[in-house]
Design a protein around this nucleic acid. Structure first.
Lengths: 226, 226
DNA sequence: TCAACCAGTCTTGTATACAAAAAATGGATC
DNA sequence: GATCCATTTTTTGTATACAAGACTGGTTGA
């Protein structure tokens, strides 16, 4: 994780713990001890518990009554399911965006796409990762459905670490950019059906690829003396 | 609200408060005072606060820092947006269900549909409301995507009070049943595209109708001296 | 040797106490 | 009579204390 997050200590406790989970500092299965977290962040157990409840609601951790909290284990199967839902939501956002976009939306979308292309051409993986995020958020915004935007952003955020590893591990930047190109065309051409289909496929490819990766990693780690 | 909920006092605090919100006992805008709730439920403020944080994560209430919690106001616009997303998710569940259903799924679906028909024929609105819920959950389950099932169930639950009022106020039972019939046909016939389209429309009709109702109510309440 | 049990420790869940911020109150002034 | 400011009161946010359920390790019995 080389990307700088702004002013760690200023953030609310909930976000600070969330960051540690999303960046992998607290890996899946990691035990979240209340007193340890409390002393580490210099507060008492009360706000820690409140933060943990919120993270549990978001699905990032699991609280077993009287048995403590652990970072959620996300197996390959569940990951595919999450990407499948993400694909559905993004497809929907694309379909609505194609019908509802206005001048501002078009500008934001083309700008974000141009930034993606630049990052791809300069082979800057970190930059592409960032601009890619901006691109997808531009699509969400163009749907003009605030609730959908929230849902997409929340799930996108949850899938963030996986997408990142995947972009780094696999050489998917070129393909990703080509797919973006087609999506932009469909949206600007007000072809909702095409936008939906293209985006759905765009996301599902990520999901399939990533689950393959995870499955192979899990398989390898199971082997004794790997 | 005549439907009996099982063993109120046995439920976790979070669910008890949630029920009061969903049933309308705590209407939108209602102020949730911590000490009042604590004394009412016979506990201290600590568990009350934890419950409130969870409800806030689910979107049922809003916590303004240092300024207390209130039941979320859901205006017509946001309601339409939520129904739009529900339509997208249910359509997706239907599409997947058409491709993935097995014997158990078929049985559950046809059984739920038969129960809906019986309730409609006997003009039992409460029963139809309940069986309708079972029918939709059968579709979610047939998608065989655990994450999608969770998302659908959560949003369905959140829209529950609105759907209920709507079914009671408007005479939509007959139309609803006919739409179910078509959906069952599409799913059993493994026609994913049709199932998606039919379900999407089925939900959106609810959303549009309800938002019309709400808008008119809001409009009327704004007029001075009604 | 191994399983079961019991005491001690640790961790979570809840209550209460205190601090700080927002809201309410009341009085003075214009 | 209305408005503004200071003070009081209420309410939230946090820390701490206590109770009760889970885990640990060792001991005992078969």
């Amino acid at each position: 994780m080389t990307l700088r997050e702004p002013d760690e200590t200023r953030l609310k406790l909930r976000d600070r713990i969330e960051n540690e989970i999303l960046t992998g500092a607290m890996p899946p299965g990691f035990r979240l001890d209340e007193v340890t977290l409390a002393t580490r962040f210099g507060v008492s157990r009360t706000p820690v518990r409140e933060a943990l409840f919120q993270l549990a609601s978001a699905g990032l951790i699991e609280i077993r009554p009287r048995r403590g909290a652990v970072v959620s284990e996300v197996g390959p199967e569940r990951l595919v399911q999450m990407f499948e839902v993400m694909a559905g939501l993004e497809g929907m956002a694309g379909r609505l965006a194609a019908r509802r976009h206005n001048g501002d939306d078009r500008e934001a979308l083309t700008e974000a796409h141009a930034a993606c292309r630049l990052a791809a051409e300069t082979a800057d993986a970190d930059a592409y990762y960032y601009e890619n995020e901006r691109f997808h958020h531009a699509i969400y915004a163009a749907s003009h459905n605030a609730f959908l935007i929230e849902q997409c952003a929340a799930l996108h955020r949850r899938l963030k670490p996986y997408r990142r590893i995947q972009l780094q591990v696999m050489n998917r930047v070129a393909n990703s950019l080509a797919e973006h190109e087609a999506v932009v065309g469909a949206i600007l051409g007000t072809d909702g059906e095409a936008a939906e289909r293209l985006l759905r496929d765009h996301i599902m490819i990520q999901g399939d690829r990533f689950s393959d990766l995870m499955a192979s990693l899990a398989e390898r780690s199971k082997r004794p003396l790997g």
